Amino acid sequence: MSIPGFRAEASVRRSAGCYTSRAPRAAADDRIVPMWTEEERQLLIMCGQRYDSCESECAVFTEYPQWQDCNIACNQQYDECAAPVLWPSNR
């Protein structure tokens, strides 16, 4: 995603303490459970593709206010599409 007229510099997150290459270990009886079902995952993929397509349509705007309005519309469409997975009412 790019915002017309906006430039950002890369930043490095610094952590306190020394670097360790070892990841914390899980207990032997801990199960790995998928976060989403296959249907939910496919829905999120489809919503992401729609969002990318919408964002590419916003690229034609060179003025920030027009681009921002288009971007807001894309985000709202994504939220509506992904709502059943990301914000389920009965979980």
Rank of each mutant, 00 (worst) to 15 (best):
D30Y: 03
F6N: 05
E63R: 04
Q76T: 11
E9N: 12
P84W: 00
G5H: 01
P88S: 12
A59L: 08
Q76H: 08
P65S: 01
M46D: 15
R31N: 05
Q76G: 08
V12S: 05
A83H: 14
Q66T: 14
R14V: 14
A83S: 15
P84L: 02
N71R: 01
S89K: 09
P24I: 02
R91H: 10
Q66E: 15
V33C: 12
Y51L: 15
Q49F: 05
A8T: 10
T37A: 06
W87I: 11
A28F: 10
P4E: 12
T20Q: 03
D29V: 09
L43S: 03
Y78M: 04
R25S: 13
R14A: 10
Y19Q: 02
L44E: 01
C18R: 07
E57T: 15
A28Y: 08
E55S: 13
G17P: 05
N71S: 12
A82E: 07
W67C: 00
S89I: 10
S15G: 09
A10K: 11
A26H: 09
Q66N: 14
N75I: 06
S2A: 10
P4A: 10
C47A: 14
I72C: 03
S21P: 02
C58H: 00
A16Y: 01
A82Q: 07
W87D: 14
C54Q: 09
R13F: 09
R7P: 04
M1H: 13
R25I: 09
S53Q: 15
E63D: 15
S11Y: 12
C54K: 03
P84C: 07
Y64G: 02
T37G: 08
G48D: 15
A83Q: 15
C54V: 12
P4M: 08
M35F: 07
D30Q: 06
I45W: 02
Y51A: 13
D29W: 10
P24W: 01
S21C: 05
E57A: 14
S2D: 12
Y19D: 03
R50W: 04
C58E: 00
W87N: 14
R13M: 13
R50C: 03
